[in-house]
Amino acid sequence: MSYEMLVGLNVLDDVKYEEYRSAMKPILADYQGYFGYDFKVSEVLISPDNAAINRVFTLNFSNKGQMEGFFSDPQYLVVKEQFFIASVGSVSIISSYDKAD
């Protein structure tokens, strides 16, 4: 069993967002996390909150506790502040769930 999130973003600055990804991946790995699928999308047909989305991906962890630890890690929060905030206009957590491996 693992834990997976399906996330939609509105990326405003691709270069800065890739810097975020590069900086956060070692921290993500410390929490047994990794990206599964990753898509750039051009059109959203239905969205309950009408948020713009141009990037959709899955984020996987060994369990929910590891996911919570990652998102509250002080090093991650510095990386988020430095790169993520300026590069992403909106975040939509589409779903999160326990996943049978």
Results as ranks from 00 to 15, higher is better:
F84Q: 01
S72V: 02
G65R: 06
Q82M: 05
Y3N: 01
K80A: 13
N10I: 02
E81N: 14
Y76F: 15
T58V: 13
D13R: 00
D73I: 07
F70K: 00
A29E: 14
S62I: 12
Y3W: 15
P48S: 09
D73G: 03
S47P: 02
Y3E: 00
I85K: 07
R55M: 07
L12W: 04
D101F: 09
V78D: 14
Y97N: 07
F83S: 04
Y37C: 14
T58I: 10
E43A: 04
E18R: 05
D30N: 14
Y17H: 11
D38A: 15
V11K: 01
N54T: 14
E68W: 02
K80D: 14
G36L: 08
I85S: 04
S92V: 13
L28C: 11
K16R: 10
E81C: 02
L6Q: 12
T58E: 15
K16N: 07
Q32P: 00
K40M: 07
E19S: 10
L77V: 03
Q66M: 10
A51Y: 03
L59C: 08
Y34Q: 10
F83P: 03
E4M: 08
E18C: 03
S62K: 15
G8S: 06
F35Y: 10
M67Q: 11
I93N: 14
K16V: 11
V11W: 02
E43K: 12
G89W: 04
V88N: 14
V79F: 01
Y76I: 11
E81I: 03
L6M: 04
V7F: 07
L59F: 12
Y20M: 05
F39W: 08
I46W: 07
Y20D: 12
L77M: 15
A51G: 03
A52L: 11
Q32C: 09
Y17G: 05
E68R: 05
V41C: 13
D14T: 07
L28W: 06
V79R: 01
N63H: 07
Y34D: 08
S72T: 13
N54M: 10
N54Q: 12
Y97Q: 13
N60M: 05
A23G: 05
L9M: 10
Y3R: 02
G33C: 08
Q32R: 15
A52R: 06
K40F: 15
K25F: 06
E18F: 05
A29G: 03
Y31S: 03
N60R: 11
G33A: 07
D98Q: 14
V79S: 00
D49I: 12
A29S: 10
M1I: 14
N10Q: 13
S87Y: 03
P74M: 07
I46P: 05
P48Q: 13
S90H: 02
D13Q: 02
D101G: 09
